[in-house]
Design a protein around this nucleic acid. Structure first.
Lengths: 235, 235
DNA sequence: TAAAATAAATAAATATAATTCATTAAAACT
DNA sequence: AGTTTTAATGAATTATATTTATTTATTTTA
C-alpha cells in the first residue's frame, strides 16, 4: 500500500460500545438535523467510525433511527409506573399523565417530531418495540379512567379509548406549533386546562333539586366560581 | 444527430395544461408511493414529460408536493361554507365539521398522511397556502363554539382554541391506525361519539331534579373540589 | 411567407447520499 | 509464532434529485 493511502489507526471496541457510540451520535445528529437532512457521514464522523461500519450494526438508516427512538423511549418511560404509584385521586393521576406527556414534548421536541413523523406513520409501526412501549404507557391512562368509573367519579357511557385519543390528540395538537419551533407553551397551565376540559365532560353530573337553593347548592356554586377564577388566573 | 439517439416527437402544450398534467401525475404517484418512495422519474413518465421538464414548472420535488396538496385542499374545502349554512343548531353544526374531517381522512388517507407528515411538520408550514386554508377552515369551528356560548348553550369558561385542538386532535388520533392501513372506522358512529364527548364537557349543566343524594355526601364532594382547587392554585 | 427570436422540452451531465463489498488489520485462538 | 476469525475500512456502486447545454417547436416580424 502506498503511503498516500494510509489508513488511520484502527481501534476495535466491544460490540456494545460501538453500538452505543453510533446510537449516541445518531441521536445527536437526528435531533439537530431531522431524518432526511442528517447524512450518515455526519453520524459516522461523530461516532468515530466510517460510514460502512454503521451497516455492520444497523440494517440501514431507518433502522438506526428506529433503534435511537426506541432507546430514548425506554429510558423515558422507565419511571412512569413508580411515579404514578405515588399519586392518588383520579384527577391528579390523570393530570400527571397529561403533564408528563407535555413535559416530554417540551424537553425533546426534535425526537418527538421524529417519532410522530417517521415511526408512528410507518406501515410497520404496530410491529415495533416503540409501539409496544407506547401501548403499555397509554394503557395506564385507560386504567386510571376505568378506576374512576369504578369509583363512580366518571361517566360510564363513553368509550375509554376515545377518551384516551381525546387526551393525547388534544395535547399533540396544542403543541404542534411548538414542535415546528414557533413559540412556547406552559406545561403547568396546559395540563390544568386539558384535565379540566376532559374531566368536565367525564365527571358524573350531580343531580340537584331546583326549588329552593339549600346550603349544598350554594356551596357548589361557590366552588364553580372559584374554579373558573382559578382557570382564569392560570393563563 | 445519429439515428441511434432519436428523440421522441416533442409536443408543446400550454403552460396551464402541462402544470395540470404534472400535478395530476404527482398526486397519483404520491398517493400510491408516498413522498420519499416516489421517484421523480415515475411522475415524469406518467405526465408524459421528461424529468428535467418538471423543474421548469416546480422549484423541486417538495415544491411539487406542496402544490399538489394545496390543489387538493382548495377543491376539498370549497363547499364547506355553503354546506354549513344549511345546517342549524350548535350540535349539528359541530357534528358536521367533525364528520367532514373524518370523511376526508376516510376518502384520502394517503394525501392526509402526506399533509400531516410532510407539510404540517415543516418549518415553513405557517407561511404556506395550505396553512392559510386550514386556518380559515378551523376558524369555522371556533365560530360555531363562540355562537354556542353566545346562545348560552356552551360553557364560557374554556379556551376556544383548546376545544378546537381537542376536536381535531381526537379525530386524528382515532384515525391513526386507519392511516397506516390497519382496519377501518365508521364515519357516522365516530362523529357521534366525538361530538357527544366534547359537548358533554362543553354544554352547561342543566339542573336536573331527581332523587337527592344526602347532604353529607354532597358536602364531601364539594370539599374535595375545594381541596383540589387549593392544591392547584398553590403551584 | 421566410427568417429571426423566443421559449419549451429534452437528454445528458453532475451532485449527493445511501448501500455494498473486497481488502486490511486487530484480536483471539492453537 | 503462526493461523483463524471478524471488525473496520475505504473505495466502488447505485439511486435519485437537480442542473445545464442543446435541440426543436412555436411565435414574431419584416
Amino acid at each position: 500500500m502506498s503511503n498516500a493511502t494510509k489508513r488511520r489507526q484502527v481501534s476495535r471496541l466491544s460490540r456494545a460500545r460501538r453500538i452505543d457510540d453510533i446510537m449516541a451520535a445518531g441521536r445527536e445528529v437526528f435531533r439537530e438535523k431531522g431524518y432526511e437532512d442528517a447524512p450518515l457521514s455526519d453520524i459516522a464522523e461523530k461516532a468515530n467510525v466510517v460510514e460502512g461500519s454503521i451497516y455492520r450494526y444497523f440494517e440501514n438508516k431507518r433502522d438506526l433511527l428506529v433503534k435511537v427512538i426506541e432507546d430514548w423511549y425506554k429510558v423515558m418511560l422507565a419511571d412512569y409506573q413508580e411515579q404514578l404509584s405515588g399519586i392518588s385521586g383520579t384527577r391528579n393521576r390523570l393530570r400527571y399523565m397529561i403533564w408528563r406527556h407535555l413535559k416530554t414534548i417540551h424537553d425533546e421536541p426534535a425526537l418527538c417530531n421524529l417519532m410522530f413523523q417517521y415511526l408512528r406513520s410507518g406501515k410497520d409501526y404496530s410491529q415495533t418495540v416503540v409501539y409496544k412501549l407506547n401501548r403499555e404507557y397509554t394503557r395506564q391512562t385507560l386504567d386510571i379512567i376505568r378506576e374512576g368509573i369504578g369509583k363512580g367519579e366518571l361517566r360510564n357511557d363513553v368509550s375509554l379509548r376515545l377518551v384516551r385519543d381525546m387526551i393525547y390528540g388534544c395535547v399533540e395538537h396544542r403543541t404542534w406549533a411548538y414542535l415546528r419551533g414557533e413559540g412556547d407553551f406552559d406545561i403547568e397551565t396546559t395540563a390544568n386546562e386539558v384535565v379540566e376540559l376532559v374531566l368536565s365532560g367525564l365527571e358524573v353530573r350531580s343531580a340537584v333539586s331546583g326549588t329552593k337553593p339549600d346550603i349544598s347548592k350554594r356551596l357548589e356554586r361557590v366552588v364553580e366560581k372559584l374554579e373558573r377564577l382559578a382557570a382564569t388566573t392560570g393563563e
